[in-house]
Simulated assay, not measured.
Amino acid sequence: MSENLLDVTDLVVEYKPKKFRAKPNRVLHGVSLGVPVGKTLGLVGESGSGKTTIGRAILGLAPVTSGSIRFDEREISKLGRRARQGMSGDLQVIFQDPYTSLNPAMEIGAILAEPLGARGVSRGDAQRRITGLLDRVGLPADSVNRMPSEFSGGQRQRVAIARALALDPRLIVCDEPVSALDLTTQARVLDLLLEIQRDTGVAYLFISHDLDVVHHVSHEVAVLYRGDIVEHGSAAQVTREPRHPYTQRLLLASPVPDPQQQRERRAQRHALAAAETSAA
């Protein structure tokens, strides 16, 4: 029996070409990874690496060409729409943009009540649940009567987190959940996610392009490069002593507050890229 809540094995994702007889675009080339119960796997890579495609495949939003996705020992890669809806209590998502992921025409209370109503929760119980969720993410109770546009980016992401928590999920796919926020707000949201995990035991698949952010929240880290996992290990090892040249470049790409150190990192990154090009 697997110790993981989520197991992805040899996952291949291809998209059909628009041109006649053109070859399919293979985004993932046989990716395998696991998310332990109550832990966080950080999945890191640059734009275009395929990391978001993995999250979408797990959520049933991207086609699975071959391979296996098992959640709590159950194969979910070929589930239909109705079966997917039945999993919403166990599997949730937090998207990158906290504004576009919330309906701008709905009050916060209605946004949070929506998943509860879909599960048949009574109005009174839903109201009590919403009050608890807002308190959980550090927002005042009167937020229920306000619109998303009345909140800052960090507050909107807290609303998105509250919505993801509404049904007490066992796993949340966090797709670049702090990349649209300033550094101070990022730190607050990351600390909130860690606190929620300690209190509830929820597991995270945390998708990001920033190794420093991933290091802050992850127990294990997998590095994705052009559709393949090129490095996988503990967060401390991968984010502090990376072995693969691509991971080393990602680490050097992480911003630092010291301008001189930032210039040195940029120079080291360019030297690594030049060395890889000459070796190829």
Rank of each mutant, 00 (worst) to 15 (best):
A271F: 11
A141L: 15
Y15A: 13
G55W: 05
G34A: 15
R81D: 12
A253P: 07
A235L: 01
S49N: 07
I111N: 04
Q197W: 00
R56C: 07
A253S: 15
D212E: 13
E150I: 08
G153V: 02
T9P: 00
F71E: 09
R156E: 13
T100N: 08
D182T: 13
V217S: 00
G201M: 03
L171V: 02
A162Y: 06
E220C: 08
D135G: 11
P36T: 04
H232I: 01
G60Q: 11
G42Y: 02
I94N: 02
R240E: 15
K16G: 11
I207K: 00
D210N: 14
A160L: 13
V173L: 10
G132K: 10
V202K: 00
A113R: 15
Y99Q: 02
P140F: 13
L139G: 02
V13H: 05
T277N: 09
A275Q: 03
Y15E: 11
I130K: 07
Q268R: 12
T185A: 14
F95R: 06
D175I: 00
R146N: 10
A253R: 04
I54Q: 11
P255Y: 09
P24V: 03
L193Y: 04
P140V: 14
G138L: 01
S77N: 14
Q186L: 10
T65M: 05
V31C: 03
D258W: 05
Q157W: 02
L167M: 10
P17F: 12
E75Q: 15
P242K: 01
Q262S: 14
S149E: 09
S101A: 13
S254Y: 07
G120V: 02
D175Y: 07
I108H: 07
F151H: 06
I76S: 15
L134E: 07
E46A: 14
I207A: 04
S2V: 10
C174F: 01
Q261R: 14
A280W: 03
L59E: 04
L190D: 12
N103K: 14
A271N: 09
Q127L: 08
I196M: 01
E150P: 02
K16S: 15
A273C: 08
A126N: 01
Q268F: 07
L61E: 12
I130M: 10
C174W: 01
L91N: 10
D135F: 06
Y246R: 02
Q186F: 14
I54S: 07
E75I: 14
L211V: 09
A62I: 10
G67R: 01
T131G: 15
Q260F: 05
S278Y: 08
G124Y: 06
G109E: 14
T53A: 07
K23R: 04
L252W: 04
V27N: 04
R266W: 07
L33H: 14
F20W: 15
E231W: 06
E276V: 11
V8L: 14
G227W: 01
L61I: 11
I130R: 03
P104R: 14
L102I: 08
Q197S: 02
A180I: 09
L133R: 03
S32C: 03
L167H: 02
D228C: 03
A105F: 15
T131L: 13
